[in-house]
Amino acid sequence: MTLPLGKRPPLLTMSHIEKTFGTDIVALKDMNLTVNEGDFVSLLGPSGCGKSTALRLIADLTHPTRGRIEWQGGQGKDDLGIVFQEPTLMPWATVAQNVWLPFRLKGQGFGSVKGKIDEALSLVGLDNFANAYPRELSGGMKMRVSIARSMVTRPRLILMDEPFAALDEITRFKLNNDLLELKEAVGCTVIFVTHSVFESVFLSDRIIVMAARPGRVIHELEVDTPYPRHEEFRTSNEYAAHTRAASDALHDAMGEAA
């Protein structure tokens, strides 16, 4: 079970992170962030504020120009899953083969992990699509496969970079609901990039608001509504209040950028 906010042990700490591209593009400037075990952290901000860059730094896909990222508790960057804005599936492989990939790259045969693959597919509601090819699926279903792949190894941390931004609102709401259930079931930490205030309030218990040029953190909000959160949460007064606060913070971020 997830501990309450403030009692969770730290998972990773970014301190004084700076990332410059070329000589003059400052994607991130002095970013400090501690992510705790069990957090659902949203990085909220206008496009170009360095959200994707922050995720790529955490995933060790790129290195900071300055500053350090430290992993606590003796585990590190090897134990993570990632979901991109596009489903990023291999079109030549079936759904099950796509979900197998993380294991396959670690040298584990399909047969030895079939149970885990089936379980992941059933968690995202795609039990009957194991042998389908990605092109036979809708956008939302492809995204579900991508999510199944990110959690099939049961990583401690999952990074998500605007995974639902390209989907229609109905599908997005459905996936938001399901994602919360999945997180509970898997018991992982999530860092979720979004530019939607509504999505960040509904999903996360911490919202990090970022501003652009240069990319930096300017506010941090807490959404203390306990999980499980259901569809009713979207129409509650609490939700409205949190949305207003997050919107104000985002306006602040946009104002500072201009």
Binding site: A59, L61, L80, E86, M90, L101, P102, R104, L105, K106
Partner: peptide
């Protein structure tokens, strides 16, 4: 696909795995 390449990096794929898969 660049994101797929990143995914292979995250899961520590070898050169041969990258080429073949």
């Amino acid at each position: 696909d660049h994101n797929l390449q990143d995914l292979f990096s995250i899961y520590g794929a070898t050169r041969w795995q990258r080429l073949r898969l």
